[in-house]
């Protein structure tokens, strides 16, 4: 299992692995929004939590189709499915690798982008915390979507159509934490709900993902 994690991370960092694409996308988004909306600090501060969360979501989406598609094409997925490792574990590890190579970097750069978007000072901690709690759910849900579409040619667009609606609860609670934090309001409830969704998704979705992978390999 550890070997799989190491392999997936290594592949992500090697040439053509796509590491950094999500980050670059996130950065571009944070540059484009002020250019479109105007430089007014109060407006930007108001929309910053939402923009940052939507940006993280879309950046996450970019690399989802790589989770299984490459392994499917080169036959690794067949071999992993017949190897002495549970497929549920394989999909969990793959989601973890996706989170480590996409989610964590997004979390780490988010304060810098918050600066670009004039995010109010009290919100930075909540931004980091909410993304840290929410991005694992994005990876796990995305892994499920990738598992559903793995056998399809040109499944990328369908993948977005399937996954984005599933991201709604995470987005709502995540952005709510940040915007309440920015206004100095209590954030306990949305934070707990955000963590709850992540916990539920991490615990249950790998079973669904493994099930649909088996169907797709048939």
């Amino acid at each position: 299992m550890i070997a799989l994690l190491i392999r997936d991370m290594r592949l992500a960092f090697r040439a053509g692995g796509g590491f950094g694409l999500g980050l670059a996308f996130f950065l571009i988004l944070a540059v484009l929004v002020p250019l479109g909306v105007g430089p007014d600090r109060t407006t930007l501060a108001l929309i910053a939590p939402g923009i940052l969360w939507v940006g993280a979501l879309l950046a996450c989406l970019l690399s989802l189709d790589r989770i299984f598609a490459l392994d499917y094409e080169d036959g690794s997925l067949d071999l992993l499915a017949t190897a002495p490792v549970p497929l549920e574990g394989v999909v969990s590890i793959k989601a973890l690798a996706h989170w480590l190579t996409t989610g964590v970097p997004l979390v780490l750069v988010s304060p810098v982008l918050g600066l670009l978007l004039s995010l109010p000072v009290p919100a930075y901690g909540w931004l980091l915390l909410s993304l840290m709690l929410g991005t694992p759910a994005l990876s796990v849900i995305g892994t499920f979507g990738a598992a559903l579409t793995v056998g399809l040619k040109r499944g990328g667009l369908l993948l977005s159509l399937l996954v984005l609606p599933l991201y709604i609860p995470t987005l709502v609670f995540g952005a709510e934490v940040v915007s309440r934090g920015a206004q100095g309001l209590a954030v306990g409830t949305p934070l707990a709900l955000l963590a709850g969704i992540t916990a539920g998704a991490v615990a249950l979705l790998p079973f669904a993902s493994a099930y649909v992978i088996r169907i797709n390999l048939r």
Binding site: R7, L11, G17, D74, G75, S76, D78, L79, T82
Partner: peptide, 15 residues
Amino acid sequence: TIAYAGHADGLKATL
């Protein structure tokens, strides 16, 4: 007990 090898070799190009 079974080791399967299909048409594709399951190799990663960059490794």
